[in-house]
Design a protein around this nucleic acid. Structure first.
Lengths: 348, 348
DNA sequence: CTGAAAGCGCTTACAG
DNA sequence: CTGAAAGCGCTTACAG
């Protein structure tokens, strides 16, 4: 392997000079510069990262402000794990993450954690801007302090985010549609269920709905009705109240798409009402949904890859901090189609 | 961060001694040993990998002997890329791969490359043992020379392989079955097509067939016939000769499963015969198959993750070489279900 | 059984 | 504008 020492000898200068031109730190005569650059190129010099890591005692502190993985949101645990794994695999570089977790939909806690993060100081932040207004305010402060930030899961406009890594929710909607369209007789009706208390997370749900409907406009063979049901809670009471009349008035319903992780609540309804033959497609793979996938009430789940999102967020952040490499602005992660047969393979 | 120097000071010994106990190199009084270990533990010492990488000028040379990614096997390019990417991400460690590529089914070339590899010498090898007899012979030689090796793609018994990373072909067969079962009326017949010239690659094909049939034995709702067609080539001539009579005699056939990457040859048949309504499920995502997925003649493709297989193979090999960590013996990669709607997301 | 010293390749003040 | 030297944390002979 070629070392800066080799370049220095060949160029007849000291290693200090070589280092200066290699890192563009100026204070070098143009002639020397060119000579060194030429030789480095000829010798195919690549820096020894272990040595430079050791010499520059740089530490990178990354902060991650994301929802807690509790209740129906354990899927946020995967983001956290992904972030941690990426940091671990970045050894021998010295990078640290500190988590600032908040309860989903708890604006107060988000704002508190954001403030704590700002007080602690950090080199960069990974941010799930699920609470739009609060996130916007926070981004403004980060901009003021020149702290770079990358979005994970959700994208919001009007900020200077370094990058975004997340699901293509629109595409996810189309995929759900294609699976239903493939399995359902063309003349049957389809029910679309949106469950969202206080309109949380609506961005994803809207995009999925749009994608879902777009499929039937431009490619699907299904000609049946597309019926909409908006629930504010996933309690059995509300589910019954909203769905019973729909099924009473539309005996042609043969499939349901639930636009969120609460798919299990609708599966439970089908179980209660003994409607096993209705196709049910929903989102996210976790215990409650898995149970119904196994028992046959859910046919397909579409899964984001939160673990990968976390990893990519760290990688991009690190590349920017360490090598000043500006990542692509938006990166959509693929989604997985999961049915009962694929389950044994995805015990991650 | 705690350094061995800190431990040394606290223990009242030199850093040389600390290093000796930390690396179990003996020649240390038991009392000193215990003391150092205790302090290291209390201080939560973790070695600085950059420093140790730099100091031990160790280089790891890995050799990979896998098929060339040409013709219908471009999917072997992904293994190669995965291996290369993993090596790249292992920087700042100094690990090199050298590839020994052979044409699939060319025993002579495999043997030549294997011999070349042995002459060149290496620290470990990543091996696709698709040619069973030749691979067995090669493994024996590796054993003689105490060179560790990990299998990729295919597993063969009776060797001392360090690990195996590959597809769960049986499971892949079940997944194909579940997709057909979901979309096909229960009384329709299903055609299973195996295309294999000189019985190459039969291990995967057999496992997929077994998995496919097992699904209908224990869970599927389909009660139709399961018809088998064995082709030795995917030429239009042979496809027509074999499939025409089957369709003539079995008007109830509603779906086809092709157990290999040659799915496009059957899609082409359906296109020629204007049978767009037949469900077709097959394997591997690459240009020829993608074309028919887009035009609607193929409904689903099941995809291995060759890129990940390559990456994991390198990671395991490196962990073993560098840290003497023996990996799990067998690791199955998940497979992806791909239809037309998921295509835009998997431009890898 | 133990310590002191040199070295891995790069970076960083500092002197000139 | 340039060079010499010290140092990053660990490893490796070598002397005792």
């Amino acid at each position: 392997m070629v070392r800066i020492k080799d370049i220095a000898e060949k160029a007849g200068v000291s290693i200090g000079t070589v280092d200066r031109v290699l890192h563009d730190r100026g204070e070098v005569a143009e002639k020397t510069r060119e000579k060194v650059l030429k030789i480095a190129d000829e010798l195919h010099y690549t820096p020894n990262l272990a040595a430079s890591t050791l010499a520059t005692q740089k530490k990178y502190n990354i902060s991650a402000i994301i929802p807690k993985g509790t209740g129906d949101n354990i899927f946020w645990n995967s983001h956290k794990e992904g972030i941690e794994n990426a940091v671990a695999s970045l050894r021998p570089f010295s990078v640290n993450v500190k988590f600032y977790l908040f309860e989903l939909n708890n604006e107060k806690e988000f704002t508190e954690q954001a403030q704590r993060l700002l007080n602690d100081g950090t080199d960069a932040v990974i941010l799930a801007p699920v609470l739009k207004n609060e996130a916007l305010e926070f981004c403004r402060k980060l901009d003021e302090n020149s702290v770079p930030y990358v979005f994970i899961d959700t994208f919001i406009k009007g900020t200077n985010s370094l990058a975004f890594i997340g699901e293509d929710a629109y595409r996810g909607g189309r995929i759900a549609a294609s699976l239903i369209d493939y399995g359902l007789p063309a003349d049957k009706d389809i029910l679309i269920v949106n469950i969202s208390k206080n309109l949380d997370n609506t961005q994803h749900l809207n995009s999925r709905n749009q994608g879902f409907l777009s499929y039937f406009i431009d490619t699907g063979k299904n000609t049946g009705l597309k019926i909409n049901a908006e629930l504010h809670s996933h309690s059995a009471k509300e589910v019954d109240e909203k769905l019973d009349p729909i099924f009473r008035n539309n005996p042609g319903v043969g499939a349901i798409m639930v636009s969120s992780a609460k798919t299990y609540a609708i599966a439970s309804y089908l179980e209660r009402k003994k409607k096993k033959d209705i196709i049910l497609v929903g989102y996210e793979v976790f215990d409650k949904n898995i149970r119904y996938l196994e028992s046959g009430y859910i046919d397909f789940l579409i899964r984001q890859r939160p673990h990968e999102q976390g990893m990519k967020a760290v990688e991009k952040t690190f590349q920017f901090l360490a090598h000043n490499r500006v990542p692509e602005k938006k990166e959509y992660q693929p989604v997985d189609i999961v049915n009962r047969e694929t389950l044994p393979l995805i015990k991650e």
